[in-house]
């Protein structure tokens, strides 16, 4: 029990911005704060495979949602946004994959509670080769994205 508490404390105290497990590095993860009552949200991150072999992200879970899946938003030439589920995300050797708004994203389905006022959620990523990785994903408000540039 003491050991668990200790590692939990260490985890909280030294929660890094990037996480590594085997050859896989995950960084810049964040999840979108959504309006009260919304049952879904999306998370984004960069996943790098530093190894020389292909790895696969096969499963995700989170304390914040019933289900966690990877989806891809596609906006076609007619402006129609469609989503596609990616069941297994291939991570080519030596490459970085960026999950970002308007493209590939981690979808949190069935939020257990509102993300408003919560600093971060915990997410577990299961890689075929690198194994499990527990990460802390900060919640970001999108009300004003900071993208506003005044002139």
């Amino acid at each position: 029990m003491k050991k668990v508490m200790f590692s939990l404390l260490m985890f909280l105290a030294f929660a890094p911005f990037s996480y590594a497990e085997g050859d896989i590095v995950v960084r810049d993860a964040w999840v979108r704060e959504v309006p009260p009552g919304a049952s879904v949200s999306a998370a984004y991150m960069t996943i790098e495979n530093k190894g020389s072999q292909v790895d696969k992200l096969t499963a995700l879970s989170s304390d914040a949602a019933e289900n966690v899946e990877i989806h891809m938003s596609n906006v076609d030439e007619n402006g129609i946004a469609k989503m596609e589920r990616i069941k297994t995300l291939e991570l080519p050797a030596g490459e970085s994959l960026e999950l970002k708004p308007g493209g590939m994203h981690v979808m949190l389905i069935g939020l257990k509670e509102s993300l408003i006022g919560i600093e971060s959620v915990t997410m577990n990523l299961s890689f075929e080769k690198a194994g499990d990785m527990l990460i802390k994903v900060p919640v970001k408000s999108m009300k004003s994205s900071g993208e506003v540039h005044h002139h």
């Binding site: 989806h71 906006v75 129609i80």
Partner: peptide
């Protein structure tokens, strides 16, 4: 889609 969400809606986003 084969997903835990009942359904998603493809829509024009302009």
């Amino acid at each position: 889609v084969d997903s835990a969400s009942e359904y998603l809606i493809g829509h024009n986003s302009s």
